[in-house]
Design a protein around this nucleic acid. Structure first.
Lengths: 146, 146
DNA sequence: CGAACTGTAAGAATTAAGATTACAGTACTC
DNA sequence: GAGTACTGTAATCTTAATTCTTACAGTTCG
């Protein structure tokens, strides 16, 4: 799995956290620690799925377009990363005479797909809001350190 | 996630499938479609966890040391790949003043850990035997084709 | 028009995964 | 006890996935 799901959650949580619920790709990128172009790509997917709205041109950026308490991590995962849990490489060879070698790929594929459903079942329990709550009640580094 | 879990399941299912429940790393490697050295590495982990026994020397190889109906995929996953579901890259920066950036890493880490528990909960439902059953009832390529 | 944004794609750089090689150790057989 | 057929393990090479960077066209506002 790549990190697009994590970055999407981070970006949405950040927008929910900020007073105006709005930020440019550059600001989000700094917060996430990646490149603005990567943020724009991910926000494009979130826009197509209705989680954010885009404002182009001067003073533009991304704006939260959903209720943070209603959007689950499962919904975000589904729009970003469905199917990325299973490894890329797969064992066996369909042309083999041995049943195990010939059918292992299909069997494991089915198992990974069903396991992913359990995975997303957990993600249903979290929303952008609950993530934000966890973040806020987490240790406040700024005051702890120095 | 890399493919060690899948290969481990494949190897154990193959051993359970074979009459003598035994095979060399080279035979397994051919069946899985990978290199014998990779199989030996994975079988070493399975041996340390008691799933197989090793016989070195001439006529040696790996032998099933467990009841295929009792060993769940969850047990195999735990010994091979715990923690590999989460992406390697992680967003945010603990040194940031912004709470979201500072704490996102810890929060997502916790979420991925808990989601993995749901994932393995599904894997509890499968054993080497149920995988083998699926393989055997799957379409038999050898007779279908040609 | 020009400045400050987004949208998108191509290519480079980095990192993880997998393949290969090598060789020491073990056990069987002659 | 020498030779053969295995495993155990580590180092290195290759390939593929991920991430970064650059570039530029399109949009909006002053």
């Amino acid at each position: 799995m790549n990190s697009e799901f994590t970055i999407a959650v981070h970006s949405l949580a950040l927008l929910a956290h900020l007073p105006g619920h709005m930020a440019s790709s550059e600001l989000i990128a700094q917060n996430v620690c990646t490149h603005p172009a990567r943020i724009r790509k991910i926000m494009g997917i979130l826009r197509k799925n209705g989680f954010v709205k885009t404002k182009e041109g001067v003073g533009g950026g991304y704006m939260l377009a959903c209720n943070p308490g209603e959007v689950t991590l499962a919904a975000i995962y589904r729009s970003m990363s469905t199917g990325t849990l299973k490894p890329h490489w797969c064992p066996g060879d369909p042309k083999e005479a041995c049943l195990v070698s010939a059918n292992m790929h299909d069997v494991m594929d089915q198992i990974f797909t069903e396991a992913e459903q359990y995975y997303t079942k957990y993600l249903e329990q979290h929303t952008i809001q609950t993530v934000l709550d966890k973040i806020r009640q987490g240790k406040c580094r700024v005051q702890d350190s120095q």
